[in-house]
Amino acid sequence: MKYSVNAKSCPDALGAASKGTTAGRLVFVSAQLPVDENGALVAGGICEQAALVLDHVEAILSEVGLDLSDVAKTTVYLADLNDLEAFDDVYGGRIELPRPARTVVGDRDLPLGALVQMDAVACR
């Protein structure tokens, strides 16, 4: 059975998407942007944006009783791949061992001029 996951503390997904969905034991979190409850890009650099993206992913997962330790796969989009080390400092502090598989993609055209965007797949 598939259904949407909606965390009220996170901004709505852009376009025709849900914040997340489930399919069997898997939970898919749509790519999260570092935006506040009004949809505005958070002030600060890559560290502040990374922290907020992780907060959003965590909030969505909590709606189905999961947390960041349940994440099996992430895809991270960085506007500047030179920010990977700083991103990893934040990510590594929040994602426990064993860490999920991860793909990192450079994308200079992230929505709203964001420095980072991340999606996730978790398993119950």
Rank of each mutant, 00 (worst) to 15 (best):
P34D: 01
N38K: 15
S4R: 06
N6I: 12
L41G: 03
F28T: 00
S30D: 12
H56V: 09
S18K: 09
Q32W: 04
C10T: 14
A40D: 05
V27T: 15
V53A: 03
T22P: 04
K2Y: 14
D55R: 07
G24C: 06
S9D: 03
N38R: 15
A23I: 02
L33H: 05
D12W: 04
R25K: 11
V57D: 02
G45S: 03
I46P: 13
V42F: 02
A13L: 05
D36M: 04
E58Q: 10
S18Q: 11
P34C: 05
E37L: 12
C47A: 15
A50P: 05
A7N: 09
L33Q: 13
D36L: 03
V5L: 09
T22K: 11
Q49S: 02
D12M: 07
C10E: 03
R25I: 09
T21E: 15
G45K: 03
G15D: 13
Q49H: 02
P11S: 09
L14W: 06
L26H: 12
E37C: 00
D12R: 12
V5P: 04
S18H: 14
N6R: 11
E58K: 09
V42I: 09
R25L: 07
A43V: 01
A51K: 13
T22R: 14
N38W: 00
A23H: 12
V57Q: 14
A31T: 10
A40C: 01
K19W: 03
I46V: 13
C10L: 02
L54E: 01
